[in-house]
């Protein structure tokens, strides 16, 4: 039984994977990526809600990897920096340095409401400000936390696939 289920998943992955429709038509990627986007994720002080949704976007159901997006282990390999959470005082420097370590052309994506306006952490003693206070943000994904479909859509707009 388990084997049959496995075989079915292998031969027809669409039974698990969500069909997300055609490639986006109204796309204005800030840089030309040739259908390949390497993402470096930085948690600048997030509650880990956004991280769960990012994981979900790369997991079998949403599987954003099929559109040419991959998470990488080094900012040197990355095209985009994915920042979650309000920027805490201790993360200001690491965030800035991570962005400077990325080769041009580079993008900064802020993910979640906290990254945009600090959300419920606004005015907290450890918080320096939103992501745009520290680095220039190119794309924002709204939500608390954003739905995986929103994350996938934003990333597809960048790869154009």
């Amino acid at each position: 039984m388990t084997f049959r289920l496995l075989l079915q998943t292998v031969l027809h992955p669409t039974s698990v994977v969500k069909d997300l429709g055609e490639a986006p038509t109204s796309q204005h990627p800030p840089v030309s990526l040739h259908g390949s986007l390497q993402v470096r994720h930085v948690d600048a002080g997030s509650c880990n809600g956004c991280e769960l949704e990012v994981t979900s976007a790369f997991a079998p159901v949403y599987d954003v990897e099929r559109f040419g997006v991959r998470l990488v282990a080094s900012p040197r390999h990355a095209d985009a920096l994915l920042v979650t959470g309000p920027v805490t005082k201790n993360m200001v420097d690491p965030l800035r340095k991570t962005m400077q370590a990325m080769p041009e052309p580079r993008l900064v994506i802020s993910l979640g409401d906290c990254a945009h306006d600090c959300g419920v952490f606004k005015g907290a003693y450890g918080v320096e400000g939103s992501v745009s206070d520290v680095v220039k943000v190119d794309v924002h994904i709204a939500g608390c936390p954003p739905h995986p479909e929103a994350i996938v859509e934003a990333l597809r707009n960048l790869t154009g696939r």
Partner: peptide, 24 residues
């Protein structure tokens, strides 16, 4: 990725990655 239940990137994805890297 197929065995993990995902669709996975197309087979020529590494070629796209390399082409992009040479422009970076």
């Amino acid at each position: 990725s197929r065995l993990e239940g995902r669709v996975g990137a197309p087979i020529h994805q590494p070629l796209l990655d390399v082409r992009k890297l040479f422009a970076k």
